[in-house]
């Protein structure tokens, strides 16, 4: 026979009540928190999101401007279209992972999937759209290798600037999942740096694109996780 579920035997227990702190302590806390109190309104979530996007766009625009003429028009245009698409992805990550207030950002495991899948997808993207392909042995020697190292270093530098900027813009906003939010901030910064260097770099070879433009995104997801745990907690 099916009926209503059996009542919870622990439901009617005299659960402990909240405990009022000592009056002296309360008075001391009240005094320190309200003495000379003034309005201290920080940036809203929307303002932080716009500033994060502006930062990314700014770095991208500067590098794209410096790089004009390095590539053929068709290659440059293709890189710009790709960057526009990934820019939308960046905005979506910022919206889903940082813009919504903590506690309303959806299931952590879904955000974790974003933080893991998107860098890998970006790595595949830069490898597959590259118009040139050489063997790994050829890539790993001589001028190609030294150019890849130099280019990767510059990409990491820009990614660091962007990730740091995004993390600072969202500093202290998430005590609930600071590591995960930091990883997504790192993802946004890493993508920004990878896209910017992808447009600026004259090399369009697949290994180079993967190692020097794409791999940094994964690194910044990890770094964002580590730094976010400290920086995003109030």
């Amino acid at each position: 026979m099916t009926g209503a579920p059996p009542p919870d035997p622990l439901a009617e227990l005299p659960w402990p009540k909240p405990v009022a702190p000592p009056a002296e302590l309360s008075a001391s806390i009240r005094k320190s928190c309200t003495e000379d109190i003034q309005s201290r309104r920080g940036l809203t979530a929307s303002q932080r999101l716009l500033a994060s996007m502006a930062l990314s766009l700014g770095v991208f625009a500067v590098l794209a401007w410096l790089a004009r003429g390095h590539s053929t028009d068709a290659t440059f245009r293709a890189a710009l279209f790709g960057a526009a698409g990934w820019g939308i992805v960046q905005a979506a990550v910022l919206w889903a992972g940082l813009w919504k207030p903590p506690g309303k950002r959806g299931a952590p495991h879904l955000r974790l999937v974003l933080a893991v899948v998107l860098p890998i997808a970006f790595l595949f993207y830069v490898g597959f759209v590259a118009p040139e392909w050489v063997s790994f042995g050829e890539f790993a020697q001589g001028d190609r290798a030294s150019h890849a190292v130099a280019c990767g270093f510059v990409g990491l530098l820009f990614s660091a600037v962007l990730s740091g900027g995004v993390l600072l813009l969202w500093r202290g906003t998430d005590p609930l999942t600071p590591g995960l939010t930091g990883a997504l901030a790192g993802l946004v910064g890493g993508l920004g740096g990878g896209l910017a260097i992808g447009v600026a770099c004259p090399s369009h070879e697949a290994w180079h694109a993967c190692f020097s433009h794409g791999l940094g995104v994964l690194a910044f997801v990890g770094l964002g996780w580590a730094v976010g745990r400290r920086l995003l907690t109030p």
Partner: peptide, 8 residues
């Protein structure tokens, strides 16, 4: 100042 409006 870093409390995001609407957070529980």
């Amino acid at each position: 100042s870093s409390y995001l409006r609407g957070a529980p």
